[in-house]
């Protein structure tokens, strides 16, 4: 018994990477599944001032203070360098991957849901040293808000300045959002992404419905 323990101890530490979407038959359940957005979308009228869509993406939190070697191998995997300027984000050429700056030693990676496991596996195989990559897809969800009046709704919810001179396309901030928290990224002229905690998804969905009522809300399934 003790011998086997000894053997186990001497083995190199196993890095566990679990595929959170093991099979196409195991459905992914959105935190807003009970709302049935696709049904609401069918009855959604003409284009409102605000358009709401929930995105199902793979989200990974990367924490490290990369040295030159790590930076090179991370860039090799991602295809883009980690954005080192505060509050900026970078999207890869094919649009599949977005890297958001969260903090001086933290980034949020967004990839298509089915690519998260592959990315995570490559990270563990290729990046050495003091680095942590965690798949947080299950704990977060992404709301996409767009439309002519989207900024008015955001202004009601957070103290962040959304003027073009302060909040250009590509900027990303983490802040208070309707007494909850959110990471807000401007992905195009009139499109904003909110990365929110799964447990707050229902509350924020109710909040956003109320806040956008006066401009008209269109839901996309």
């Amino acid at each position: 018994m003790s011998e086997t323990n000894q053997e186990t101890l001497e083995q190199p530490p196993i890095k566990l990477v679990m595929n959170q979407l093991p099979d196409a038959n195991v459905p992914f359940e959105s935190p807003l599944h009970h709302v049935e957005l696709t049904k609401i979308a069918e009855h959604s009228g003409s284009q409102g001032g605000v358009v709401f869509r929930e995105l199902s993406l793979g989200l990974l939190t990367l924490r490290c203070t990369p040295n030159a070697e790590q930076a090179a191998s991370i860039e090799g995997i991602l295809g883009v360098a980690l954005p080192s300027n505060p509050l900026t984000s970078i999207t890869s050429a094919n649009g599949e991957l977005t890297v958001m700056w969260i903090s001086p030693d933290e980034w949020l990676l967004q990839v298509p849901q089915d690519k998260a496991f592959e990315l995570e596996s490559r990270f563990f195989a290729e990046v050495s040293g003091h680095v942590s990559l965690v798949n947080v897809s299950g704990g977060m969800t992404v709301f996409e808000l767009s439309g002519n009046d989207v900024v008015k709704v955001l202004k009601k919810s957070t103290p962040i300045d959304f003027h073009d001179s302060e909040f250009p396309v590509g900027k990303v901030v983490s802040s208070i959002f309707a007494k909850s928290g959110a990471t807000i990224c401007r992905t195009s002229e009139q499109t904003y992404q909110l990365v929110v905690r799964r447990s707050f998804a229902d509350y924020l969905w109710l909040w956003l419905q109320d806040a956008s009522k006066e401009y008209g809300l269109t839901v996309m399934g």
């Binding site: 505060p86 509050l87 903090s103 001086p104 103290p159 962040i160 802040s175 208070i176």
Partner: peptide
């Protein structure tokens, strides 16, 4: 000093 910009106290 890490984000490099002014924010409200509630943050």
């Amino acid at each position: 000093p890490h984000c490099g910009e002014y924010r409200e106290e509630e943050e």
